[in-house]
């Protein structure tokens, strides 16, 4: 059992997931502070997705404990789901619905009181600069805009934590940066951001990052510290040095 601590949004202790004889996630332990932007990196197949699924309450750990937003993973998944937002590159807004219809729908799904919905949507449109796109079908938005909209929708219910799974894949460089500015904005509001990415420059934007190798967390620290420790000019070099040691793929 982990003692709840108000300073941390996510507390993980020896979290493990096995599929048959294969240990996808191997006794990982870490904490994420409230309001922190936490980069969760790792090579394909290192176990990131499996770990993230457990933290989102979508998959039951084989052993170990984790508290997400104060709720115990595997026991109180409903509590977790109410307090987190989730978005991925594949996270689909409904393409055949208009911008506001999507917002309206997710506001309803996340249980925002009927009276507040209109106000929230207007606030969101304004902060995204989407006022003129309110009646646009999502499918005709550029990819970068879609991602921004998807992110805004994933935090429409003011969650304590938002999980972002490769949110910027395939997005043009300018939109990618605008997206990160939205992430900062959310973090400033006190939302904890848990993000995975394959863009190593984006790893630099995180307060702290962890790199998973073969189901274990190989390192966890500030990007700056890691670069010094591994003598890398940038995170790309640090990542390669660590991930090269991977045995499985």
């Amino acid at each position: 059992m982990i003692q709840p601590n108000d300073n941390y949004s996510i507390m993980v202790e020896d979290l493990t997931k096995r599929f048959g004889s294969f240990t996808a996630v191997d006794h990982i332990s870490f904490e994420v502070k409230k309001g922190e932007i936490f980069g969760f990196l790792g090579a394909n197949g290192a176990g990131k997705t499996t770990a993230m699924k457990m933290l989102c309450g979508l998959s039951k750990p084989t052993s170990g404990n984790a508290l997400v937003a104060g709720f115990e993973v595997g026991k109180d998944n409903e509590g977790i789901k109410k307090n987190i937002g989730y978005m991925s590159q594949r996270f689909s807004l409904y393409e055949e619905l208009k911008v506001w219809e999507n917002m309206r729908l997710y506001a309803g799904i996340y249980g925002i009181p009927e009276k507040q919905i209109k106000e929230r949507i207007e606030l969101m449109l304004e902060s995204l600069g989407f006022q003129n796109e309110i009646n646009t079908f999502v499918k005709s938005l550029p990819v970068g805009w879609k991602q921004k909209l998807a992110f805004a929708v994933s935090i429409i219910h003011n969650p304590k934590i938002v999980f972002l799974d490769e949110p910027t894949g395939g997005v043009d460089p300018a939109s990618r940066r605008q997206f990160w500015e939205l992430i900062y904005q959310a973090a400033d509001k006190g939302i904890t951001v848990f993000v995975t990415t394959h863009y190593m420059d984006e790893a630099e934007y995180c307060n702290r990052i962890s790199i998973m190798v073969d189901g274990k967390i190989a390192v966890i620290d500030k990007p700056q510290t890691l670069k010094m420790q591994y003598h890398g000019r940038n995170m790309d070099e640090v990542f390669r040095k660590l991930a090269r040691n991977a045995v499985r793929s």
Binding site: G42, A43, A46, H198, A246, S249
Partner: peptide, 13 residues
Amino acid sequence: DEPTTGVDPVSRN
């Protein structure tokens, strides 16, 4: 066509 999308930096290299 986009052979490296969604692939980690090491594999991309």
